[in-house]
């Protein structure tokens, strides 16, 4: 009888030992899962922000339509150092425009977000009104097709909500979205 009780007690110990073993394995698995997810979205997201790599961007227009914000937090940014200050600007005028005037019918931007300012003959400066820009990339396409590619898309961090899972990044066909340190938030 006593022998049976000892056996029972041993079985209980064995039961607990096995339980602890399984528990440890579960804990390790859970820890691994936590670390993996935190590396991707967690701790680092406090120091990193979403940005769009202009080298990878294919100017598909999704930044305008898939951002959770309306209008999108992605805006056209002008890299002035690369601009030719052209009179016939491919980013400003519709292809085939006959008159180089600021008439709405001549402008490529659907929201007239690009301002054209006369500097001196024959130079014009082009600036972006970010409140009007919807990030559709039409001007970026025009500038890269006919100009120096001085117009690029960038996530503007004064607007971006820095979602854990950026909706544009998810749908970007070129996988041009990436996390960058908030201390250097631009990729231009």
């Amino acid at each position: 009888m006593k022998k049976n009780d000892d056996k029972k007690a041993m079985d209980r110990r064995e039961f607990i030992r096995t339980g602890v073993r399984y528990g440890c394995v579960s804990l390790l698995a859970a820890g691994g899962l936590y670390l993996t997810s935190s590396r991707k979205y967690g701790k680092d997201s406090q120091h990193k922000v979403w940005q769009l790599d202009p080298e990878k961007c294919i100017k598909c227009g999704k930044c305008a339509t898939t951002c959770v914000l309306t209008p999108s937090a992605v805006k056209c940014v002008h890299v002035y150092a690369a601009c030719g200050y052209c009179n016939l600007c491919g980013g400003y005028f519709q292809p085939g425009t006959k008159k180089l005037t600021t008439g709405g019918e001549n402008q490529l931007c659907p929201t007239a977000a690009i301002k054209r300012t006369y500097i001196e003959d024959p130079y014009y400066e082009y600036s972006i009104d970010e409140n009007l820009c919807i990030g559709c990339a039409k001007c970026v396409n025009g500038c890269s097709d006919f100009g120096n590619s001085s117009l690029v898309l960038q996530v503007r961090h004064d607007r971006c909500l820095n979602c854990n899972e950026c909706n544009i990044a998810k749908s970007c066909p070129a996988q041009a979205f990436t996390r960058v340190p908030s201390s250097r938030p631009e990729l231009i």
């Binding site: 085939g96 039409k138 066909p173």
Partner: peptide, 22 residues
């Protein structure tokens, strides 16, 4: 998600820029 991306890729870009005629 990839399948979703593919289906969204096939959507027409309302802001398309086409100079193929030129």
């Amino acid at each position: 998600t990839k399948a979703g991306n593919k289906s969204s890729q096939s959507q027409v870009n309302p802001f398309s820029y086409d100079i193929s005629d030129l």
